[in-house]
Amino acid sequence: MINMTEEITEEITEEVEETPAEVFDVNYACLRCGTTVSNTELSRLPEIKCICGFRVFTKNRPPVVKTIKAI
């Protein structure tokens, strides 16, 4: 009985490890020079700063325009 539960828990842990976690990679652009930087690259740096030295970033958004009907 103990061997069966160990096998089942091993199978479950293997299935969980195989499914990748959802990673949302957000891209930012420097407001001064326009260099695009991903969120993972910014998290690796000790401070949030562009290569040009500017510290203000804007979030790059897709060029999709949402239209909403008026009520």
Rank of each mutant, 00 (worst) to 15 (best):
48 I>M: 13
68 I>K: 13
26 V>H: 02
35 T>L: 06
53 G>M: 04
59 K>R: 14
37 V>W: 08
17 E>F: 07
65 V>Q: 09
69 K>S: 13
45 L>V: 03
37 V>R: 03
25 D>V: 14
5 T>D: 09
59 K>D: 00
40 T>V: 11
69 K>V: 08
7 E>S: 15
22 E>P: 04
42 L>S: 02
6 E>K: 15
26 V>W: 02
71 I>G: 14
16 V>C: 03
62 P>S: 11
2 I>M: 08
66 K>A: 11
51 I>W: 14
68 I>P: 00
3 N>F: 06
6 E>N: 12
34 G>V: 03
23 V>A: 06
39 N>V: 03
36 T>Y: 02
71 I>Q: 11
7 E>L: 12
56 V>M: 07
34 G>A: 06
31 L>Y: 05
10 E>H: 13
33 C>F: 10
31 L>C: 12
23 V>F: 04
12 I>Y: 15
49 K>T: 11
66 K>T: 12
36 T>S: 09
3 N>E: 12
41 E>I: 02
69 K>E: 12
21 A>P: 07
33 C>M: 10
7 E>F: 06
26 V>T: 10
36 T>A: 10
31 L>S: 14
32 R>K: 15
54 F>H: 15
6 E>Q: 11
59 K>H: 02
44 R>H: 12
38 S>E: 00
42 L>H: 03
14 E>S: 15
71 I>D: 13
67 T>S: 13
14 E>L: 03
68 I>W: 04
35 T>E: 14
49 K>G: 00
43 S>G: 07
59 K>V: 03
34 G>L: 04
24 F>A: 05
11 E>P: 01
3 N>S: 10
17 E>G: 09
69 K>Q: 13
1 M>F: 07
42 L>P: 01
27 N>R: 07
32 R>A: 14
57 F>G: 01
19 T>A: 10
61 R>K: 14
6 E>P: 00
4 M>V: 11
52 C>D: 02
53 G>Q: 01
47 E>G: 01
18 E>G: 02
32 R>Y: 09
68 I>L: 10
49 K>R: 15
33 C>T: 11
56 V>Y: 11
39 N>L: 09
24 F>S: 07
70 A>R: 14
52 C>I: 01
42 L>Y: 02
62 P>K: 07
48 I>S: 04
25 D>R: 09
38 S>K: 06
50 C>T: 07
61 R>M: 09
24 F>Q: 08
70 A>W: 08
20 P>I: 00
38 S>V: 01
30 C>T: 03
17 E>Y: 09
47 E>L: 08
57 F>N: 02
4 M>W: 04
53 G>Y: 07
1 M>T: 08
56 V>G: 05
43 S>A: 11
3 N>V: 05
24 F>G: 03
56 V>K: 10
52 C>R: 07
28 Y>D: 00
20 P>N: 05
55 R>Q: 11
46 P>S: 12
63 P>Q: 08
40 T>G: 05
20 P>R: 05
